[in-house]
Design a protein around this nucleic acid. Structure first.
Length: 275
DNA sequence: AGGTGGACCCGAACGC
DNA sequence: TGCGTTCGGGTCCACC
């Protein structure tokens, strides 16, 4: 599942490939990708554009174009981007779009479950679009423990649901939520507003450490996700909690358990992370 | 207002 | 072996 570290990896690999290049051809095969906008409209608008920068906000990839418009890409669950010299990408039944660049590179978008989205927004719409959906970036300097405390104050939702809510903090998904809570030794069902200062300080460190580790290892490859150059991420080898039902806790040796919190599968250590 | 649960999607894993 | 069923997960939206 592409979360902040996976999308950041995509951004880092694609920015040198995309920046300064001009799109010479665009094909979008799946009407779901741009819905409700006709994919031909989006494809036509992309052709002739030069890419200024490739950014990221939360789990959104932001392809900023010289015209001032931005292609906002969300990979959702199974989306991925690949690049290769033009014509060299192998056939793919799940390819949903392809861009050709004047540099002789093809960029292919693949999405098995078709939840991903491409939206072309102009400057006036991008800011409110992101502001309505996303809280602060957890890896920036200004995201302090005090800020996390303010965000959590009065919240009755389980801390896991709080971490998954993109309007509170941007970029955390199911994997990094479980990993952060394991690191902080906090039970996923604890009401967010009831955590004390010490616990929130631990959680603050844990969220950032888990995300940074993910970025360092170029994300987690479970089924679908691969980085744009085709390599796998390495974070899945570092999981302490996620998906480890019955395996011994790396801290205390007791078996990891699985429960459902906020409708999501949740793995934790019942000894280290108590209610 | 804020929290919860279903819909969207489809391949993999599972059960008989 | 083969078929049907269940599961999952990010976000949006309807419903308490």
């Amino acid at each position: 599942m592409p979360e902040l570290p996976e999308v950041e990896t995509v951004r880092r690999q694609l920015s040198p490939v995309l920046e300064g290049a001009t799109i010479t051809d665009a094909k979008i095969h799946d009407t779901r990708l741009t819905r409700p906008v006709d994919p031909r409209l989006v494809a036509d608008a992309l052709v002739g554009e030069t890419i200024a920068t490739v950014g990221r906000r939360g789990k959104y990839l932001l392809v900023r174009l010289e015209s001032g418009r931005t292609l906002v890409v969300h990979l959702r669950m199974t989306g991925s981007l690949r690049y290769a010299p033009a014509g060299e990408l192998p056939a793919d039944a799940h390819r949903r779009a392809i861009l050709r660049l004047d540099t002789g590179t093809d960029i292919a978008y693949r999405d098995v479950r078709r939840f991903g989205t491409w939206e072309l927004l102009d400057e006036d719409h991008l800011r409110p679009y992101l502001a309505a959906r996303l809280g602060p970036e957890p890896l920036v300097q200004s995201f302090s423990s005090a800020k996390l405390t303010r965000l959590a104050a009065g919240r009755r939702a389980p801390i896991k649901a709080f971490l998954l809510d993109q309007r509170r903090i941007a970029g955390i998904g199911n994997i990094y939520a479980d990993e952060a809570l394991w690191r902080a030794r906090i039970h996923p069902r604890r009401p967010a507003g009831e955590l004390d200062e010490t616990e929130l300080a631990r959680l603050h460190r844990a969220v950032r450490a888990a995300l940074r580790k993910g970025v360092e290892l170029e994300g987690s490859t479970l089924r679908e996700y691969v980085t744009p150059n085709g390599s796998a991420g390495g974070m899945q080898r570092e999981f302490h909690a996620y998906g480890r039902l019955g395996e011994p806790c790396d801290r205390c040796g007791r078996p990891i358990e699985r429960i459902v919190v906020g409708g999501r599968g949740t793995w934790f250590c019942p000894h280290c992370q108590r209610l």
